[in-house]
Write a protein that binds this DNA or RNA. Structure first.
Lengths: 228, 228, 228, 228
DNA sequence: CATGAATGAGATTTCATTCAT
DNA sequence: GATGAATGAAATCTCATTCAT
């Protein structure tokens, strides 16, 4: 469709090289020289496309982050139920990070804690994605799937914090060896908690004494168990 | 009690200044000159106490991290039940991070993703603390408090990931404004999950007896409050 | 003929300045700053051309040493007899050192005792020249000009040692005031020791005729004078 | 006899350590710290005994050089003939250098080319020794052992240059493996050049043709004298 | 007298960035 | 538009030397 101008191709080569090198060595330890060499251009050419080293750094995650967001937006409308949406969102994150290790290394190890990154276009996209996650949680609260008294921001922090922690460990320590496999266990735990629910008995008692909660017996969790 | 040698005092001043400056600007953007000036010594004196800038960086968290670990080891024996222990551990982390914002900024923003930090003495202490958390989770599984089929490593990553995410947000965005307040909501969510449990004992008991079991709500958290 | 690229010119200016300053003050007491200023470039520019101060030091003697070697190789084929060759070699050394006092000061005072210099390209050239000298001595032994039982390595050490001693004194003490003038006295002294004394014939002739063979004295030196 | 005061002992330890370390690494690459540690004293103590690093450097060769000179002065009176004296002097140098490799490394590799060393007490002693050598040569000229027209300074430079060259090579390249063994070959080479030639062949020829040439002992030297 | 402790004074080296061609 | 070449501006780190105790 869109013709790739040689200019765009060059820019892409610079970004690709920069991603690789920044991800490996971090912002400060990478040099423009190294990046330009890897991209097959001169130092000065890098400055034709980006005004500064930092601008280059921040340009890297733009495209991929936007693509990922668009992907999520395409998938979500097909899902019914906040459980499913939540699970899908977690899976989207994990898949993105696992399939694009240089990208996730850059984000987790080098950008996440960079104050200037917060003012960035790419960060704005990331916030949009985070807002989708928040909406999903809020929706769950509103529709009665989730508890009424939970703090959706806290829940979101749990989800993102866990994802990021796993991803960071994956990069630094190599464990877990696989991120996507963690999706279901993680979502199941989020939904149902750690604690043994001694409710089968209770529920039966409830049912005995008047409750009509039979149909509510943790259907999702059962389903999840099957699915996982 | 212990006489503070002038040498130790000087070393401490250097560490304190370094903590402040590294926390604010990061390792690369901080200069030895700045740190030495803040400590009231010369550049060369910094090198009398630390062989390199990086050695100084890594020396900073040593003491405080060890102190925190010892604090945790003093508290835990007094707690009964994995719930209480888990809650206490989360609270210890959050309290540490909130009371020592420079320390937590240093760890969250600058050390956590530093590969060399992994080889450090302070990191070893951090791992010890993380092992305590893991043991607590495993204990919960063994004693039937927690579900049998959960992955204790995943649970730990959830806990640490959430704590770190909250702490990082706190530093970068200022929200939440308070970390310790997040302890109970977080632990409750961890223990019981997001999803409305229409099965809880509480409910069934409520239904059965119509009684005021309100006071039993979240017993552990009350206990924790007293203990903390 | 050959266009001098501005880059080469700049490099040459740096080398020239470095020669002057290193020769005067030695490696450690010379600063890059001083050299770059003398060359009319910035400190950083010096590092565009040479990777380190030491690399710059070792680059200095390369060209001149090679030129000198090539000069020697052009001259020697025209000489007949090891006497003449030996004399020519000594003269080549002395001329080189006297005409290029900065070069010889650098070599004699600063490089000759530098262990790293031994691994250098310029030193390799110097060794080649020294091998020429050795060959000449060996040739003299083989063709019967020199005594059979002399150690050619020792002779070479005598020659080079003397040259270097004279040159070093010349630099440090100003005496002798002239190096090339020492060539003939030195070679004569050396040869009269080395050379097989063909005096039987002379003497017998003397005795036979009682004549004055004064006019035959030191024929080689006359020849040398012409050749030199 | 003389009691060794602890002060002298300390000074000696410092000098010994300094000799070792300066000889190994040179003046600039050796540090006071290293030397003081090797001597078992503090940095500051070094400065109690020597006003500067350079003063320490120059103090090192004092004693040993003086001892060597005194040794030579004790030996020479027992020798008859400049040949013997010359040989003895060369042997004294070589022995000194070979038996005291740290000392000779210091002199050859680090002091010989140091301009400030020339103003030094130790250098004065070295000059005295060199003057003995010169006197010996001059004596040889005067008493007719050596040719009349040789330049004694040049001869001295030949002798010292050769010795130093051999010694330097010995340190830097390990060859020759033995210095003292070079004494006789060297002196023989020198003398055969210097000395009036008393060639066996000549003598026999003399005897053939002229009867009693007993009185003609050393005819070559006579001839040389005439020719030169 | 010995020294622990401190530091002044630099020097090398690195790189992001600029600019003329 | 691309780049070769140059450099300004620092920052880390080193050490000889000093001085109070």
């Amino acid at each position: 469709m869109t013709k790739i101008s040689p200019k765009t191709a060059r820019r892409d080569r610079i970004i690709t090289s920069a991603l690789k090198i920044f991800a490996e060595k971090g912002f400060q330890d990478a040099t423009i020289s190294e990046i330009s060499k890897a991209a097959g251009v001169s130092d000065a050419t890098v400055y034709e496309y980006f005004n500064s080293k930092e601008e280059l750094l921040f340009a890297i995650p733009e495209e991929i982050t936007e693509d990922a967001l668009r992907g999520a937006e395409r998938i979500l409308p097909f899902l019914r139920g906040v459980d499913s949406k939540l699970r899908a969102l977690v899976q989207i994150y994990m898949t993105l990070y696992e399939k694009n290790p240089q990208y996730s290394a850059l984000i987790m190890l080098h950008l996440k804690t960079n104050r200037n990154f917060l003012k960035t276009k790419a960060y704005e996209v990331i916030r949009t994605a985070a807002r989708m996650l928040l909406s999903c949680i809020q929706e769950g609260i509103e529709d009665g799937t989730f508890k009424k008294d939970i703090d959706p921001y806290l829940v979101r922090s749990m989800i993102l914090g866990t994802i990021e922690h796993l991803c960071t460990r994956w990069h630094l320590l190599g464990t877990p060896s696989n991120l996507v496999e963690q999706v279901d266990p993680l979502v199941d735990l989020l939904l149902d908690g750690l604690r043994v629910q001694e409710n089968s008995k209770n529920i039966s008692l409830n049912l005995n004494f008047g409750g009509d909660t039979a149909s509510l017996a943790k259907p999702a969790s059962l389903k999840d168990t099957l699915e996982s």
